[in-house]
């Protein structure tokens, strides 16, 4: 009987998760252009990757993106969560904060692409009012990655804040009462009590958001398309280009496998370093 219930999900799981995972691993050791059968070529793809400056550039750009995106987003999310926690339990405020997350990446990217336009974008108009010269947010290679990162901070900070907010609500009120009796200031309470007790939640939030952040693609694909001069050619976009414009499936698979390994290591290190499972509330 159980078999009938599990059958459809298992078919989907085997065909679209397990099988492609194994096949992807195999393809990474082949030369494959989609036109003829994959040809085994050992470690050639990996050797090529080590000497491919575009690959290293893509990794570097992606890391730069992740650092800016996650750094900014986490700080803002904790700030927003604290503000909501101390000020209001209003569902309306929480809903507004969440709204950008429900709109497609592509939509968000295009709206900001328009707002940040160097000539007629409203953001540059605002900057003009305070005496700042127009900035080519997407056209200047120094600005492009911070711009893309900032756009996605806008989309994700509310969602992340709600996750942190849920974590804040799990902290029992007696610890705050005790802190107040001891005459602790708000600032001290935040650093000495709230943040340490929030650690398990923060670690999980960091792991999940960072894995997502490494997979930045949509925003780049509809705005800069990797430019200006490779400044935003993130790893996902580079793999996509290799596979679907050059039909270099073997090499693309090898890079995807390396990305997989990087994500696994990053997650494990985070969990280890930040001792996710231990809570100070034992």
């Amino acid at each position: 009987m159980a078999m009938i219930f599990i059958a459809p999900a298992t078919v989907g799981f085997v065909v679209f998760y397990i099988w492609p995972t194994l096949r992807g691993a195999y393809l990474s050791f082949t030369e494959y252009s989609l036109l003829s059968a994959p040809k085994f070529n050992g470690l050639a793809n990996y050797d090529r990757m080590i000497h491919d400056s575009f690959f290293w550039n893509a990794l570097g750009v992606t890391v730069e993106y992740v650092v800016i995106n996650i750094g900014l987003q986490t700080v803002l999310a904790v700030g927003i969560a604290m503000l909501m926690y101390r000020l209001t339990k209003s569902i309306t405020v929480r809903a507004i904060i969440l709204a950008p997350y429900l709109v497609a990446n592509v939509v968000v990217a295009l709206v900001w692409y328009w707002m940040l336009d160097v000539q007629v974008g409203v953001v540059n108009t605002f900057l003009g009012w305070v005496g700042i010269d127009p900035i080519a947010f997407f056209g200047d290679s120094h600005w492009a990655i911070p711009t893309v990162a900032g756009i996605n901070v806008w989309r994700h900070m509310g969602y992340t804040a709600l996750l942190v907010f849920a974590g804040l609500q799990m902290i029992p009120s007696y610890v705050y009462e005790a802190a107040e009796v001891d005459g602790s200031t708000e600032w001290k309470t935040f650093w000495r009590i709230t943040l340490p007790l929030l650690r398990p939640v923060l670690v999980m939030v960091l792991v999940v958001t960072m894995i997502g952040s490494f997979q930045i693609f949509d925003t780049v694909a509809v705005t800069t398309q990797g430019g200006p001069i490779n400044a935003t050619r993130v790893i996902y976009y580079y793999i996509y280009e290799r596979a679907f414009t050059r039909f270099d499936f073997g090499y693309a698979s090898a890079m995807a496998l390396v990305l997989f390994a990087i994500l696994a290591v990053v997650s494990l290190v985070q969990l280890r370093l930040l001792r996710a499972r231990e809570s100070d509330l034992a």
């Binding site: 998760y17 099988w19 492609p20 096949r23 393809l27 894995i211 490494f214 995807a256 994500l263």
Partner: peptide, 26 residues
């Protein structure tokens, strides 16, 4: 049962780009 469930959950770790390439071929 529990082993199969653990396997299903493990699939959450695989980044989509990795399975997308073979899925496209399929």
């Amino acid at each position: 049962r529990d082993k199969v469930f653990a396997l299903f959950l493990a699939a959450l770790m695989v980044p989509p780009i990795f399975t997308v390439l073979p899925n496209f071929v399929l």
